[in-house]
Amino acid sequence: MAEFIEYGYWGLFLSSFLAATILPFSSEAILSLCVYSGYDISLTVAIASLGNWLGGLTGYCLGYLGKLEKIEKWLRIKPEKAIRAREYLRKRGNAFAFFAFLPFIGDLIPIGLGLLRTNPYWMALFMAAGKACRYIVWAWLTLHAMA
């Protein structure tokens, strides 16, 4: 993970993007290192949010372009888990995209919304808000831990 901080904002962007996929990755640690290292906090939060949001949109596009069977195969998602997520998301709609920042299930939310062909504009807006809120809170917690 230390390699990402060597690339500065680009490393933060890449780590945030990867963390929004099904890869088990902690972009929060990189964000904390950036804040601790004296990077501009507003720019750090903006870049982390943008990278994570674009990673989530990638998941949405995979879902939108794919069929449930292909998503299960490519991403190694168990069929019963994918079906449960699809039914749950069908009832909640785009506003559920706000919670795409959550660990584990958060990676499945954009994919499920894509499979359901939900409105991409509303989904993108709610997802951006959730991801930005997460990084704002994380940066604030990091600042207070340093004090």
Score class of each variant (00 low, 15 high):
G38V: 15
L18P: 13
D107A: 11
L62P: 06
I71E: 06
W122M: 10
I41F: 00
Y64P: 15
A82N: 00
P110A: 00
N119E: 05
R90T: 06
L108S: 13
L115W: 13
S37Q: 12
P110C: 01
T21F: 04
F13P: 14
R90K: 08
L75Q: 03
R76H: 12
T21L: 09
A29R: 03
F104M: 12
G55A: 06
L31P: 01
G112H: 04
S37D: 10
E6F: 05
G38C: 00
A124P: 14
F101N: 01
R84P: 04
I77C: 06
C34Y: 08
L33N: 01
D107E: 05
R92L: 09
R86L: 15
T118V: 11
M146Q: 12
F4L: 12
A124M: 14
E28C: 08
E3F: 09
K70T: 11
L89A: 06
M123E: 07
F99N: 04
W140Y: 15
G38S: 02
Y39Q: 07
W138I: 09
L23M: 10
A139F: 02
S49E: 07
S37G: 12
L57M: 09
H144V: 02
R92C: 07
D107T: 11
S32V: 14
R76F: 09
F126L: 10
L50S: 08
A128Y: 14
G8Y: 13
A2G: 00
S27A: 08
